[in-house]
Simulated scan of single mutants.
Amino acid sequence: MVLESKALLQIQKPIATVFEGIVNPEIMTQYFISESSGRLETGKTLIWKFPEFPDQFPITNVRVEKEHLITFVWDPETVVNITLEALPNQSTLVKVSEKGKALNDANIEWALQNTGGWANFLACMKAYLEYGVHLRKGAFDFMRTKV
């Protein structure tokens, strides 16, 4: 059995706006990451940084289908899939799944944490794209590694 974390949320913006909000690092740094070495594009390898952690996260195996799918690997055991679905009222349904880890106690904890993490990603993206609110700012300062 393979574990999967999932989250979904409707964002009151057209699919083109939501897609750009995910692939464009200038937008994504407003609600999720602190730095990116580039735009999410098929075939690219990127480095992401988060404001809470000193680590750098390599983003590999990137595949992008415009306004439909973004997929990448940032944990060698899992694949992240973000799908977008245009809804009739000019809003977009965003679904995130991350799967690939085997069933065991440690990975059950991973699935629970990542489901919450992806739900947070979606809530922060919604707040920023719809209202310009930086919901993530300061939310995880308690996690900063002490130097």
Rank of each mutant, 00 (worst) to 15 (best):
A139I: 00
N89Y: 13
W48N: 08
V62S: 02
F72A: 02
V133K: 13
M125Y: 03
D75P: 05
V73N: 10
E98L: 02
Q56K: 06
L9A: 01
E35Y: 14
N81F: 12
L46K: 01
G132P: 07
K95H: 06
V94S: 05
E85A: 15
R136T: 01
H68F: 11
E41V: 13
P25E: 11
T17M: 01
A7Q: 12
C124A: 09
I47V: 14
V62M: 06
V147N: 10
D141H: 09
G21D: 03
C124H: 08
V18S: 00
I82S: 04
H68R: 15
P14V: 12
V79R: 03
A111E: 15
R136S: 12
K146I: 08
L69I: 11
T17F: 01
I27K: 10
S37F: 11
G38K: 01
L112R: 07
N107E: 00
A123E: 15
S36E: 08
A127H: 00
Q56H: 00
A139S: 13
L69M: 03
I15K: 07
L9N: 05
E4N: 08
F53D: 05
K126Y: 01
N81S: 11
I108M: 11
E98Y: 04
D75N: 13
V96I: 15
T71Y: 08
Y128K: 02
K101Q: 05
F57H: 11
V147I: 10
I22L: 15
M1Q: 07
P14K: 08
R144Q: 13
Y128D: 03
K44F: 11
E67C: 08
C124D: 12
F142S: 09
F32E: 00
F72T: 08
M143F: 10
Q90K: 12
M28A: 06
V133F: 15
E26F: 01
R63V: 14
L8V: 08
V23Q: 15
G21C: 06
P58L: 10
E77N: 13
E4H: 07
L93V: 04
R63T: 13
V64I: 14
Y131M: 06
N114E: 09
H68T: 10
K6Q: 10
V133C: 03
E85P: 07
T78I: 13
L3W: 10
P51E: 15
A102H: 10
E26Y: 02
G38Q: 02
V80R: 05
I33W: 10
T145V: 15
K126L: 04
K137L: 08
L135C: 06
E35V: 00
N120I: 00
E109M: 06
A111V: 15
L46A: 03
S97K: 06
P14E: 05
K95E: 09
T78V: 13
S97Y: 02
W74M: 08
V79E: 06
F142H: 14
F57L: 08
N114M: 12
I11M: 11
I47P: 04
D75L: 12
R144V: 14
G132E: 09
I33Q: 07
W118G: 02
P54T: 07
P88F: 02
T145S: 13
Q10V: 14
V80N: 11
D105H: 08
F57I: 00
P51D: 15
A119T: 13
T92L: 04
E130H: 05
F57S: 03
M1F: 09
I33T: 14
E98D: 03
G21V: 02
K99R: 13
D75R: 05
F19N: 01
Q56V: 02
Y31I: 00
H68A: 15
